[in-house]
């Protein structure tokens, strides 16, 4: 496989990150060397999903329980007003 190139600006947009020019340059070099490392994988045929039949996932019952209080949860919010989290205007 030929070396793939990462479009830093595009991926940063998807990841909701921004870099100034100097940072972008540093990241471009580093990310490219990381991609060059990880892309060396052997060809393998698709042989089904990786599951462990002896230890399957167990979902709990979808039931309402008294877990955390609203006030306690909101204590960590950066900005709260009238029991709600404040965010910038989202609808024009």
């Amino acid at each position: 496989m030929t070396a793939m190139k990462m479009d830093i600006a595009h991926v940063a947009k998807l990841a909701k990150l921004q870099f100034d020019e100097q940072e972008a340059q540093k990241f471009e070099g580093q990310m490219q060397s990381i991609i060059d490392m990880v892309e060396n994988l052997p060809p393998l045929s698709d042989s089904g999903a990786l599951i462990d039949p002896e230890n399957p996932m167990i979902m709990r019952e979808d039931k309402v329980t008294d877990h955390c209080k609203r006030d306690e949860l909101l204590k960590n919010a950066p900005q709260v007003q009238a029991g709600c989290v404040v965010v910038p205007k989202v609808v024009e």
């Binding site: 990462m6 830093i8 991926v11 940063a12 998807l14 990841a15 990150l17 990241f27 580093q30 990310m31 990381i34 991609i35 990880v38």
Partner: peptide, 8 residues
Amino acid sequence: RRIMLGTF
């Protein structure tokens, strides 16, 4: 770096 690699 990890977020960028993962997103990519």
